[in-house]
Simulated scan of single mutants.
Amino acid sequence: MSATILITGASSGIGRETALYYAQQGWNVYALARSTDKLAELAMQFSDKIVPVSLDLTDMTAMQIWLSTLPVTLNFDVVLLNAGNCEYVDATDLDLAAFERTFAINFQAVVASTKLLLPRLKAGNTLAIVSSMAHFFPFTRSEAYGASKAAVSYFTESLRVDLANTGINVCLIEPGFIDTPLTQKNDFAMPFLMPVAKAAKRIFDGINAGKLRLRFPRRLGYLLRALSLLPYGMRSKLAARMKQS
């Protein structure tokens, strides 16, 4: 019997590529996203493996209704909570609505999805949650995005502690710059930009190996960790200089 994965944010970027990769490996894939058209196009590539599910993950009721239509015996071998978005803000005129939108999808939807999907996991299954390396360093205009990803990383690591006795594997995924429609909007240099297909393989291999945390590209992770060791004042000055360059 084929293994089954549920992936959120599956209509584009990392989610889409990872859904395709898992389907190529023979997995059954429940692909969740808002865009019905993009999901339909995705499912056409593996019609026998990919089940498109059009849902707004910020609508907990809609998720509950959909889950109630599934067989009660269905367990997911892997749940990959990947959906997210990035909005940059202006520090001199903070857009509160941008913060609300960013946290709604990047954090609150992760918490709600975790609550609803945990009953569909059992010992030996994996809950994988996508955060970002963005919270490692104070990047310009990233107050909303970076803060939401910091919240996701802390939530995931704390959750792992509290689920330790359940046998459910909790994997924290913290990508750097990945070549997706989201990053293609950026107007600044993105060091060690990784092709999205390579990121999908890293996720598949890491989850399959039972890793607790995945960070890629590794070179960016090493660089950001080195920067975090700088004296706090020096680190702040460097971040300000990077903004001006």
Rank of each mutant, 00 (worst) to 15 (best):
A197E: 13
R215E: 15
R218S: 07
M60E: 10
D37F: 08
N75I: 13
N208E: 05
T4E: 10
L39E: 05
A151D: 09
H135V: 09
R213A: 00
N82I: 06
K211Q: 14
H135M: 08
K198L: 01
R215D: 08
D179V: 05
A3W: 15
K185L: 10
V170C: 05
G221D: 15
I14D: 09
L118G: 05
S68F: 07
E17Q: 05
I5G: 06
G206T: 15
S132V: 07
W66A: 02
L214D: 07
V72S: 00
L229H: 14
F103A: 07
A98W: 09
Q184C: 11
N169E: 09
D77F: 01
K237N: 11
A10N: 00
D162R: 15
L193R: 09
D90I: 01
G26A: 10
T69I: 02
V72K: 00
S131D: 01
L20H: 09
W27S: 05
L127W: 08
A112D: 08
Q244S: 14
F107L: 15
E143P: 01
Y22L: 05
G124H: 00
R219T: 12
L96C: 11
P138C: 02
G221L: 13
A144T: 04
F99K: 08
K49T: 07
I207V: 09
L96Q: 07
V29K: 09
G13P: 06
G15F: 02
L20C: 03
Y222Q: 03
T92N: 08
I105R: 03
V89P: 01
A109Y: 14
L230E: 14
P231S: 04
N82K: 05
S131T: 00
